[in-house]
Amino acid sequence: MAIKRGRGVAAINYPTGMNLGGDPTQALVHSTPTGNFMVTLSSVDLGQGMKQIMAQICAETIGVPTDRVVVDTADTDTGPHCMGTFASRGTHRAGNAVIQAAREARQVMLEVAAEELEVNASDLETDGQGNILVKGAPQRSISIFDVALSAHFKRGRSISGRGMFLIPRSYPEKETGAMKPSTCYAHACTVAEVEVDDETGEITVLTVKNVFEIGRALNPKMVEQQLVGGSWMGISHALYETTEPYYPDRDHGGTDFNQYLMPGPGDLAQTEIIVLERPSADGPYGAKGPGEMCANPQIPAIANAVFDAVGVRIDTLPITPERILRALKAQASN
């Protein structure tokens, strides 16, 4: 009886969104009378940072500082339609819708500015600081504050835009069954090191080293935050989480969230995160979906590490001490 060490590696491709029934998200953008911009969405921020990212995307597209944008996700009954924030789709789907809406609003904003400056709208550019300038003659300029006042009180214009992003439903080909149920794949690879006690079946994850390819990191610190939490969730999926440990029997299943096992602060593996940025062709400013994707590669990597350590393949999650001991027993009797 001994504590045995093993190392496992796994790589994944992970889709952004899920278009089995069509995958739409819509967005509306409009300016207030003082030239701030509202983004209206039904996409919900659960703490993953949706509002911050959508504010950045809208600000970048219109050409204003991020703090001039307010994102309202207040009510899924009254906001523009969104399928929801799941399947790593929020940044990609809602972001593309916000870009389209913000472009339309920007165009109206430039048209009003053009009337005020008595130039052609196509000769105007934004400075990113809240001003609109004549290209090549920046001394001729107007603030977006004044453009909004003009639109609202003088010219009767609504500086607003509509955004619609839809990945259409994919039907399987009749002959082959081939289909495209998702788009914009992100990629990840994890190397996990574990120790397995072959007497008790206990597993300790020593290290997880993760590389994530996530398109462009629109907010690098928030991406890192997602990946660190997600890597921990992957370990949790692999070793801890279940509501039915003897599925389909409900016996011994947790009945409340505090009985739903996840690793605590004393159970953490040494975690390394490396981000590779390869901007995607159809993502908003090159982004893919890092959210759910990042909690996947740890699972097969840990299963492989357990095999490397004690020579048993556990193909049911979570990989509990009991399952390891039963597998070791079966292996010994064969």
Partner: peptide, 8 residues
């Protein structure tokens, strides 16, 4: 208990 950050 935290369910988002992974505690680190």
């Amino acid at each position: 208990i935290c369910r988002c950050t992974g505690y680190e």
